[in-house]
Simulated scan of single mutants.
Amino acid sequence: MASKLTTLHTIKDEPARSPDDVYAAIKDAVTSGQYGAGEYLREEQLAKSLGVSRTPVREALRRLDADGWVETRPNYGVRVKAWTLQDAREIFEARLLVEPYLAGRAALSIGVSDIERLQTLADAMLEITHRPSTPESSEAWFSANAEFHAIITAAGNNSRLDRSLRSMKETPLIKWTFGTYSDDDRARSARQHFEIVCALKQRNAAWTEAAMRCHILAAENAVLDRPNRGQPTP
């Protein structure tokens, strides 16, 4: 327990000043894996580490509970949510409903500079597939992939759907899914990124939507149909 309490004091170097700052700081600590699944978050320790009173911490924990990042257990406290394979299935289902639609819309309005950036990111991800798989290469892949998809969904010009999609993708579960990818999975995903870029260049909404749908379905298959890989809580 002592080691966990020590970790609590390293969330943020500078004191948070607003309720939004407190929320973001705790959320960042959860998404980065600083707190493990099932670990309790203590108001007093969080307030001390962030340089604030317990009131904004309490409010931040309520928001994190409402957003599905933590869960409140009466008489015990607030703990980090343990993600399950069912959570992964639900996220993929939601992505399949929203993301191809936004990609198709993006094909009709995305700017040239955004397409050029997507090409650069696709090139970078292809280059990563030629390296040995390491934690650093996986992190580089995750970062490039996240930016790639964020550019496309933002170009879909539906801010509410885009925000909802981004919220789902911020979960620690998303990083876990990338950790399950084999070298072949990454190579396949890299090729699909190039097809999506090609469809966007052609301003072909139907093609872009179909390419994005196939991309997500392939990712779902790679993650959920490999029972021998590391998994979150069953």
Rank of each mutant, 00 (worst) to 15 (best):
I216V: 07
V98S: 04
E43I: 07
V98R: 01
N221Q: 15
L108E: 10
L118R: 00
R89T: 01
N221W: 08
D67S: 05
G230E: 09
A210I: 07
G179V: 08
F194V: 02
V22K: 02
L217Q: 12
R89D: 06
V197I: 09
R58M: 06
I174K: 04
A106L: 06
L200I: 08
E99M: 05
R191T: 13
V30N: 04
V112M: 08
M125V: 05
P135K: 09
E93H: 15
P19D: 02
G38P: 01
T7Q: 14
W141I: 02
Q45S: 14
S113D: 14
R188G: 12
A124V: 04
P234I: 07
L46A: 03
V57L: 10
V98M: 07
P132Y: 09
L85H: 07
A206H: 09
L173F: 06
I196V: 13
A122L: 02
I151K: 05
V112H: 12
A206Y: 13
G179P: 03
A82T: 14
L224I: 00
N75M: 11
E59N: 14
E170V: 03
T120N: 11
A144T: 08
Y35C: 07
S138A: 09
T31D: 12
L121N: 00
A140L: 08
S167Y: 08
A88R: 02
I115W: 09
L8H: 15
S109Q: 15
Y76L: 14
D65S: 09
D184T: 14
Y181T: 02
A210L: 08
T72Q: 11
N228G: 09
N221T: 14
H130T: 12
A82I: 08
L108I: 05
E139W: 11
F194L: 12
T171V: 11
I115F: 09
F92M: 00
K81C: 08
F194H: 08
Q34G: 12
D123Q: 10
L224D: 03
T134K: 03
A124Q: 00
R58A: 00
N204S: 12
R163E: 04
A66F: 08
R226N: 13
A210K: 07
T10C: 11
A122I: 00
G111M: 01
I11T: 02
E209L: 06
S137C: 05
A88W: 04
N204V: 13
V70H: 00
F142L: 15
T129V: 07
T31N: 13
L50C: 01
A222L: 09
Y101T: 03
R105Y: 06
R117C: 12
A150V: 07
L5R: 12
S49G: 03
N204W: 04
C214Q: 04
S53P: 01
S164F: 13
R186E: 05
T153M: 12
L173D: 03
D185Q: 08
R191N: 05
A219W: 06
A190G: 05
T120M: 15
D13S: 13
P74F: 04
A107K: 02
